[in-house]
Design a protein around this nucleic acid. Sequence first.
DNA 1: TCCGGCAAAAGTGTATACGAAGAACAATTT
DNA 2: AAATTGTTCTTCGTATACACTTTTGCCGGA
Lengths: 226, 226
Amino acid sequence: MAEDLRDKLGAQHLPLRDQVLAALRTAIIDGDYLPGERLTEDRLAEDFGVSRNPVREALRVAEAEGFVVILPRRGAVVASPSSGTIGDMFAVRERLETLAARLAAERASPADVAALRALLDQGREATQRQDLPRVAELNSALHLRILQISGNPWLSSIAKSLYLHVQWVFRLGAEQRAPHSWAEHIQLVDAIESGDGDRAEQAALAHLDAASAAAYENAEGGYGAR
Amino acid sequence: MAEDLRDKLGAQHLPLRDQVLAALRTAIIDGDYLPGERLTEDRLAEDFGVSRNPVREALRVAEAEGFVVILPRRGAVVASPSSGTIGDMFAVRERLETLAARLAAERASPADVAALRALLDQGREATQRQDLPRVAELNSALHLRILQISGNPWLSSIAKSLYLHVQWVFRLGAEQRAPHSWAEHIQLVDAIESGDGDRAEQAALAHLDAASAAAYENAEGGYGAR
DNA sequence: TCCGGCAAAAGTGTATACGAAGAACAATTT
DNA sequence: AAATTGTTCTTCGTATACACTTTTGCCGGA
């Protein structure tokens, strides 16, 4: 029997609450809902065209992820990513993504490396076309892929969440730096391909330091802290 | 992350969903709900004596935290912490908690150090009394306190979540090691008090390595990976 | 005008009910 | 024995109700 488990379970049905959560996240990241803005359940329910229950469940997860703050009997407000936390985020990313790079170097299969190279090529091409949104997208894809190759689920899920917040804090500023950082990406993938964990970790560190420095420059124009 | 608004006014309520979530977490960690066990909403609602709504919201968060897996239209089952992830968890903890130790060393106020010393004393006392549960509790309290002193909210919240999972995977085994590890704790606090980041990081690393080694020994008797 | 208090409004927290649809399992038929 | 059908369980989304809390806005009085 060639029947797989994959569509055995109703896997293509995605619950409304997940759609609401995704929509809520992107709305917050894109700035449609501004930090400090009050998010009443009724309002969200109306915005997304659903009832209160899916909204409530999405809100609880969004709270756990740090996108909103829920005050008892007062409701939810969009969290305020004070620019002071940029340093905190990068400190954690530095620890986590360097580990990911090391593990990826030690475990990457040829197919994994090929996938990374493909992303690299697309990134170079998109950079030439000045397609900034696409570059940013590929940038995320590359890093996420490395996380995945590392094979450590904790690393992967934690860093993924961090990534969303990084994008939130300086949503456009980072895009402008992305082309510049592409050379560092090549170094990183080269190091991973070599299988040298130390070298990969070093390359990741260099990349993050550069990104961190750029982030601080762009941070000035960001949101004020509440 | 930590909004001061939270404890500003009238925040002593503690919504039911939070109580349910806490109860659910501890029930899973304590093994009252075993991995793979099916958790229907009605059943949980009855177990905790509440309606389905708080249960649903708690389940979504528990899913985000990795304690349960929710299959669309099938319901929630307790996640299976295969012992193979022990190494993954420790790899991440090593990166994170060493950073926490370093930051704590750099930022700890005298009051912070005093609080750590107090925990240390209580720990020594509890160890003499052979009060294992209390020792385990103080062990958690100490590490959590260091996380908090580090002042990095991301570090704190991520590591806190990891901690719960670590306790889950080898819930009793770790308790038996706890007395043995107390000497390492003293080294760690000493290093933090000295303000020497490198030394604190080193002490944290030594502690985690020892804990990791002990964990692997105890892991054999744990759950089988389903 | 400004202040204090009081009452209405808004909004969350919780419970309950109901219909729809998917998934699993049992029974029946071929 | 295999396939089909039917039943049951459960989630999913919706709707409604109500208690309680916080907020707001109004009103009268100084």
